[in-house]
Write a protein that binds this DNA or RNA. Structure first.
Lengths: 313, 313
DNA sequence: GGATCAATATACCATCGCGTTATGAAAATG
DNA sequence: CATTTTCATAACGCGATGGTATATTGATCC
C-alpha cells in the first residue's frame, strides 16, 4: 500500500473530483486518473461509484481517504518541521567560549535569542583557545566565542572580530580605590586578588597587567571559581581582579561592580566569533551567529557611548 | 516530501539501524541506504549523527520519524481496511427479493449474518421477477432472492435453486378449517381472503390455486399490505391467504399462523439466488450469498424433518 | 431527445526513482 | 590487530509516474 496513493485518494475525495484533486496536488488530471485506476486495480475494488459524474466515493474509498488524510497531515507536519529547520527557526546550536564571557555576556544574549527562537536548542560549553579551535575545526562546535591574537587565527577557520580584547581591573562599587585619580602599585598591592583559573588566558593577563604596573608580588585570596563565585567574592570584599571590560559592563546592572580607571596594557587579542570556513553552517547556527554579532554591535555602541559620557563627566 | 521516505525514516529509527530497518520494510539494505542519503540531500540536513555506528538520529531525524510513524500507522490501517474488504468482512451487499420472502425469511437471515459480519452493510430492496433480473443484470443488485420458473432463468445470469416454490393456504392457528381432513371449495369460499399486491406472482398463484380447487369466486377483505400487515390481519381474523410455505414455516415461531393441509397445485417455480454470471462478485457479496445458501440448506432440512414428523403423527 | 460542454479515461513517450546484486570502506568488538 | 558487523557506493534494469494530445462519456440545456 503506497501512502502516496492514499494522499491522492484523499485529495480527490476532499476536492470533489479528479480535476480539482489533481490541481490541489499540483499534478495533471490524466496522471491522477491513471494512478487512481491503478490503485483500484491493485485493491481489486472500485473506490468511486462508476457511471456517476459528480464522482462519488464508495464506502471503501471513503474509509481509505480517511487514512489518506492522516498521511497528508503527517506529510504537511514533516514539511513544516523541515521548513522550520531550514529557516533556522528550529535546530541545535553548539556554542562554546571562554567561561567568563559565556557566563557574563553570552548567556543573556542566548536568553534573548531564545525569546524569539523558542525551538532552537543551544548547547553551551566552556573552553579556551586551542581547545575551542580544535572543536570548531572538527565540527563538534558550531561557533566559538573567544579572544584571539590576530596572528593566531587558524587559516582554515573564519574569525569575525566583534570587540577589542580590553581587560580592566574590577572591584566592588564603593571600593576605596574607586575615587582615586592616580593609582600606585602600592595601592594595588594592599588588596587581595581574585585569580581566574590558572590555565586561562585571563590569568596570564592578570600577571602581565600587574607586572606592567610594577606590582610584582600580590596576594591571591581566591581562585578557580566561575564568574558567579568570583562576583560574589568581589562584591563581598575589597578584593580586586582582572576581567574583560565587556563582562564588567554587562554585569554592572546586576551586581555592584565597577572598573578601576587604571590603564593595564591591553593584550593584543580581539574578541570574535570563530566558525568553520569551508562547510555551510546549519541555518540555526547561521541565525545564532548573526544574532550574537548584532548583539555585540549593539554592546560595542553602548560601551562607546558610556565611555564618552564618562569623559564628559 | 514523499511520505514513503518518512516511513523509511521511522523504520530505521525504530529498528535501530539501516539493516534492521530494511528488513522490517522488506527491502534490501543498500536501497534503504541510498534512499536515506537522497532524503538527507533533499532536506539539506543530516538525519543521523555521522560517524556513529549505532546509528543515532538527530533531533530533526527524530521529529521527522515521528511523522513517519503516523504515516506508517495510517498505511497499516488502510491495509487492514482493504484486507477486511477483500475477505468480505466489510463492504456493501445490495440484496433484492420478493417482499414477503424478504420480510418473512431473508431479513432474519441477514440479522444472523450481521452478528458475525458486523461491518457488512446490507441494502435491502424489494421487487418482482423482471425488475429484479434487470437490476441484477445491470449490476445495481448483487443478489436477488426470488422464485423463477426454470425456463425463465436468463442465460446471462447465474441462478442457484435453494427451495421448491411451494405455496400453501395460510390462516391463523385455531382457525375453524385447521382440523378438517377434507376441505371443499365450499369451505374455502366461506372465508374472506387476503390478497397479495395485484402485480405480485403470489397474487397470480392465489387465483390459480383457487381456480384449481374450483372456488371461482372469493371474497377479498384485505390487500396490498406488506407481510407484517398481512400477518396482523391474518392472526386477527379468520381470513385466508396464500403464502410460500417457507414464509409460514419461518413465521410460525413468531406469530400464530399455520398452513391448511390442502393441496394447491404448485407453481413450477423454484426459489433461488440470482447473481451475475460473468463478473466477479464482491467478497462481501460472495460471503453473503454463501451464507444465505447455507441458511436455506438448513431451512430445507428443518422443513423436511418437520414434514416427516407431521406424517408420523 | 439531441446537441453541447465539462469531466474523465486512454494512448504514447520520456524520465526518474527504486529495486536488485556485488563490492568497498569504516567502525565496533574481541 | 584481526574479525565482524554495518553502512556506503557502483552499475544496471524496470516499473511507476509525469507530461501532452486526444477520445469517450455523463450531465445539462434548450
Amino acid at each position: 500500500m503506497d501512502p502516496r496513493h492514499l494522499e491522492l485518494l484523499a485529495a480527490i475525495v476532499d476536492h470533489g473530483g479528479l480535476t480539482e484533486g489533481a490541481e490541489a496536488l499540483g499534478k495533471s488530471q490524466p496522471s491522477v486518473s491513471r494512478t487512481l485506476a491503478q490503485l483500484e486495480a491493485r485493491i481489486g475494488a472500485p473506490l468511486f461509484k462508476s457511471g456517476k459524474r459528480p464522482l462519488q466515493p464508495t464506502d471503501l474509498g471513503l474509509a481509505l481517504a480517511e487514512q489518506g488524510r492522516a498521511v497528508l497531515k503527517a506529510d504537511r507536519a514533516a514539511s513544516e518541521i523541515v521548513d522550520r529547520w531550514r529557516t533556522g527557526r528550529s535546530g541545535l546550536v553548539r556554542a562554546g567560549g571562554t567561561p567568563f564571557f559565556m557566563d557574563g555576556v553570552i548567556a543573556s544574549m542566548i536568553a534573548r535569542f531564545q525569546q524569539t527562537m523558542t525551538d532552537v536548542r543551544v548547547d553551551q560549553s566552556y573552553g579556551y583557545g586551542p581547545d575551542l579551535i580544535e572543536r570548531v575545526r572538527s565540527g563538534a562546535l558550531d561557533i566559538a566565542i573567544l579572544p584571539l591574537p590576530k596572528e593566531d587565527v587558524p587559516e582554515d577557520l573564519s574569525f569575525q572580530p566583534i570587540l577589542p580584547g580590553l581587560n580592566v581591573i574590577a572591584c566592588r562599587e564603593g571600593h576605596p580605590l574607586v575615587r582615586r585619580r592616580l593609582l600606585t602599585p602600592g595601592d594595588i598591592a594592599r588588596y587581595p586578588w581574585i585569580a581566574p583559573p590558572a590555565d586561562s588566558p585571563l590569568y596570564r593577563d592578570l600577571r602581565r597587567a600587574l607586572s606592567n604596573i610594577g606590582a610584582e608580588d600580590f596576594r591571591i585570596s581566591f581562585s578557580g571559581g566561575s564568574l558567579a563565585s568570583v562576583l560574589s567574592v568581589l562584591t563581598g570584599s575589597d578584593s580586586l581582579t582582572v576581567l574583560p571590560y565587556s563582562v564588567v559592563f554587562m554585569v554592572k546592572g546586576r551586581a555592584p561592580v565597577t572598573a578601576l580607571s587604571l590603564e593595564i596594557g591591553h593584550p593584543n587579542r580581539v574578541l570574535g566569533l570563530l566558525v568553520r570556513a569551508g562547510t555551510e553552517p546549519t541555518p540555526a547556527a547561521r541565525r545564532f551567529r548573526a544574532f550574537i554579532a548584532a548583539e555585540f554591535g549593539s554592546l560595542g555602541r553602548r560601551i562607546a557611548k558610556h565611555q564618552t559620557e564618562q569623559i564628559w563627566r
